[in-house]
Design a protein around this nucleic acid. Structure first.
Lengths: 216, 216
DNA sequence: CCGCTTTTAAGGCAGGTGATTGACTTGGCT
DNA sequence: AGCCAAGTCAATCACCTGCCTTAAAAGCGG
């Protein structure tokens, strides 16, 4: 199935070329600041409509980038999830939630752009919905959220929703921050992606277990 | 000093008109997706170069918007800071850190756009630096960070930096999230800006006090 | 070996962009 | 009163954008 014909191979190669070029440009200059033409040129395609041909609109291109990484991240997440069974420990579930993205970035090696790309998508009013559709449908993710919820039976549902949002933001933004520091040769609080994940998990456990102030 | 001349009054009025129109459009459609022309028109200026005249580039416009709010937020922060003296309680310092933005948004009343605007700026690779320059120079902010640091003498410096970044992200992103929900008539976990600030402060206290895993 | 489809290349088109320019309006100062 | 400068407006510039059309190239099936 893989490389069935020389033709199909070539096509998927240029698709990949466009995908990585777009990811890089989007991360470095901002999604809306980069035109499809620039992406095509950066991908080495003399054709200035290559993006439009292989993907459709820019939103479709963004979706394709998200999906490419999502499948790999999903694998990591499923593997971690299988490793903890139905632990009653909040820490285990938080680890499952936190580690997939940093582990994926570490596996990519070298300089990466995906975290910064994601951080931008998440705050863009129109692109935001795309990534929600693509990643929140993950069954393993829902399973982790349920498992974490079961560990925190005393937390009011609104507070749980609230802290879920906080966790989501940190899981996206902190890797982006580290990636940015790496790209600009600035020092990072942690030496490796794995250590960064540990630091983030530490903090999130504290966040989830924090007492709720009884309001007047 | 105020309204010294009818002319100066008119000028600052149109400046204000442009500022609020820009803030709204930027928040709703994305900073890079909105042209200076559109801002001028939305501000009721038949002139399509009004933005260019009163401010310079789009970056200068962004800076002006940030600065406008920053001064008011700075006032609130200074007032809160004065109220706690040199408390040894982490909670007091976190409150000082968290509450200024939600209080400012509450004071504005009606629908607001500033939080979403800020959330976008913070993730844009080029605009990011502007807001850092404008807000990190705040003396009261530095004072709060120092006070909080004094409450957490056992926390390793790298972890402190790391969790400071986390807190910064949440303080920007969570109000933006609430603002978005409000704008789209979605339910929010908390009824008021003040309650939202309390929830955020609860979580941040837990985050700061979380134990640090001793890595292998 | 040859027609065929898919992919890449190249250029044109209308519309929108930031920036600049000059003319007009309006309030302020002497 | 009358000039002056700040502010407003409209027109224009070169440039870039997405989209479209037309070729060329390169396997692929027969």
């Amino acid at each position: 199935m893989a490389a069935r014909t020389a033709r199909a191979e070539q096509v998927s190669a240029t698709r990949e070329l466009i995908l990585t070029a777009a990811e890089r440009l989007f991360a470095e200059r901002g999604v809306n600041a980069v035109s499809n033409r620039q992406v095509s040129e950066a991908a080495g395609q003399g054709n200035n409509t290559a993006v439009g041909y292989h993907f459709g609109t820019k939103a479709d291109l963004v979706r394709a980038i998200v999906r490419k990484h999502a499948t790999q991240i999903e694998e990591i997440r499923a593997r971690l999830l299988a490793g903890i069974g139905d632990s009653p420990d909040v820490r285990d579930w938080v680890d499952c939630l936190v580690r997939p993205v940093p582990q994926h970035l570490a596996a990519l090696g070298g300089p990466t752009w995906y975290a910064r790309f994601c951080a931008q998508i998440m705050t863009d009013p129109v692109l935001h919905q795309i990534v929600v559709e693509e990643s929140l449908t993950s069954p393993s993710l829902r399973q982790i959220i349920d498992g974490l919820t079961a560990c925190l039976p005393d937390l009011p549902p609104e507070v749980r929703a609230e802290r879920g949002e906080m966790a989501r933001h940190l899981i996206v933004q902190m890797p982006a921050e580290r990636e940015r520091a790496l790209a600009e040769n600035r020092p990072t609080p942690r030496a490796t992606w794995d250590d960064a994940a540990t630091g983030l998990a530490d903090a999130l456990v504290g966040l989830w277990l924090a007492p709720v102030a009884n309001r007047p």
